[in-house]
């Protein structure tokens, strides 16, 4: 039971952290819950489909269907996160000031919510399909410990949900003035890590063949497969033995998102205007 619990928990760490971060990022946006829950629901539905068609997908495109699919959904998530950060750079201050309530702003907010719902859906989809395959395998094994193992699996899922709640509560404890700066950074690192992982899948598929040498090895310190390794992998994209191209993708996305967000940063027009006009 404990073994199953640990395997399932390890698989759902990424989705758990992503949901927690998205929950705190969208704090103050009206009507966010239907989007986030919708993203989770579609992610679970997609995970079931992905598990059922795992064989078909793996055999597709001359045997690299699974890798290309993973790289594609990760790239989509990176684009959505970038878009969200740009949107946040422009409107974060208004939301923090709680002046965003009705009208056009909510309509624009819902587009950002849609982007984040996609990110949540993708995180749940990727990890979820592996959980489904694993638990299905456990259920098929026919051992007398099946019930205990399935229980362990669900406890692992519950721990993942707990991680979401823990992440959310931890982040919203940050004072509102700093919250969006912190979550903006978290999202940037999340996206950079996902970009590096997309590159890893393309390397595995033999699509990227350039700069595939390992740059450093910190597996003696922290392995990717450990719980802490998984958490850091999701949060900052930690990889114990990254290749050159993964590092390039990571740094490129980190730099691009920082620069783009800065370029689109909200300029405090309204407050200054009223201050000068009042004189």
């Amino acid at each position: 039971m404990l073994g199953t619990l640990i395997i399932v928990f390890r698989e759902v760490i990424e989705a758990g952290l992503v949901v927690g971060i998205v929950l705190s990022v969208t704090r103050g946006l009206a009507g966010r819950m239907p989007w986030i829950l919708g993203g989770i629901f579609l992610g679970v539905a997609g995970a079931l489909l992905l598990a059922i068609f795992a064989g078909t997908l793996a055999a597709a495109l001359e045997g690299i269907g699974q890798e290309l699919f993973n790289a594609a959904v990760l790239t989509t998530a990176v684009l959505m996160l970038t878009w969200h950060n740009v949107w946040m750079a422009r409107h974060g201050r208004e939301i923090a000031a709680e002046i965003q309530t009705v009208g056009k702003d909510v309509a624009r907010g819902s587009r950002s919510l849609a982007a984040l719902a996609v990110v949540v859906g993708i995180a749940v989809l990727r990890e979820g399909s592996e959980v489904v395959l694993f638990l299905y395998g456990v259920a098929l094994s026919g051992h007398d410990t099946v019930a205990a193992q399935i229980t362990g699996g669900f406890l692992g899922l519950a721990l993942g949900a707990g991680l979401s709640a823990f992440t959310y509560l931890g982040l919203v404890a940050i004072p509102t003035r700093y919250l969006f700066a912190v979550t903006g950074m978290l999202i940037t690192f999340l996206a950079a890590g996902m970009a590096a992982q997309a590159v890893a899948f393309l390397e595995q598929a033999d699509v990227i063949t350039l700069m595939t040498d390992t740059v450093w090895d910190t597996s003696w310190l922290l392995t990717d497969s450990s719980i802490a390794g998984r958490v850091l992998h999701t949060l900052i994209g930690y990889v114990d033995r990254p290749t050159g191209m993964e590092v390039v993708a990571y740094v490129a996305v980190l730099a691009a998102m920082t620069l783009i967000s800065r370029a689109f940063a909200h300029r405090p027009t309204g407050s200054k205007l009223s201050a000068t006009a009042a004189q």
Binding site: S129, E130, Q204, T223, D224, T243
Partner: peptide, 8 residues
């Protein structure tokens, strides 16, 4: 982890 591979 050693080979940098994960495939279902």
């Amino acid at each position: 982890d050693d080979l940098h591979v994960e495939k279902v």
